[in-house]
Design a protein around this nucleic acid. Sequence first.
DNA 1: CATATCGGCAACCTCCTGGTTGCCCTTTAC
DNA 2: GTAAAGGGCAACCAGGAGGTTGCCGATATG
Lengths: 112, 112
Amino acid sequence: MLSDRIAAHGANPAMIFAALGDRTRLSLLTRLSDGQARSIAGLSADTDITRQAVTKHLRVLEEAGLVKSMRIGRESQFAFKPEPFVELRAYLDSVSRQWDDALSRLRTFVED
Amino acid sequence: MLSDRIAAHGANPAMIFAALGDRTRLSLLTRLSDGQARSIAGLSADTDITRQAVTKHLRVLEEAGLVKSMRIGRESQFAFKPEPFVELRAYLDSVSRQWDDALSRLRTFVED
DNA sequence: CATATCGGCAACCTCCTGGTTGCCCTTTAC
DNA sequence: GTAAAGGGCAACCAGGAGGTTGCCGATATG
């Protein structure tokens, strides 16, 4: 099952949220979300931080399952992985649903 | 406008994600998402951390706009605020859309 | 009024995070 | 084969995050 592989990677919602909770990582991920895999050097070119810093961010994204990497020759290519977004949306939906239910209960109570 | 008030509070997506990127805060928020406002003492009762720690987490959630507080007598009540969830969902959607577009472009390219 | 309850403030501690630098190994390019 | 490019590893650093304790002010409660 899909969620098993995610869980096996240890990526709970909090981990995924935490991985997204950084401007730099968010921008890296947004850039990768066009489906094109990019090398570390390629991703570092447009930023003002070091290649090493970019590498660390990419590792965080990878451990959260938001990105996958593969070594090709001397470069390692990083690619977007959409699966955790499903997880996240499910979480947001569950919270929103509980909220909406509370609202509608309140409404029926008031209307009584 | 709604997003203005959010922006005025300084809550960009990264901030909101960061606020959600902690197990304790996530659980506090989930508990509050039933629509019932709770006092700090009430929220601290079910946790194993200090009331002070809970207070700090609540402040983080409040600055991210995920929660609002009001002082009533000697207690301060914290209540769930759904607005940032809209913001978040919009962000997730934008990334997903870009991803889907990339996929469909790839598909038409392959089919050519 | 005396006392418990609720909560703010401040200091402090530890560990993690984001970032840097230096060095070295491997792979490509000339 | 030599040089340049890509990237890993490790050490290091400053600051922030999560948490604690101690104390004190204000509000309810008997």
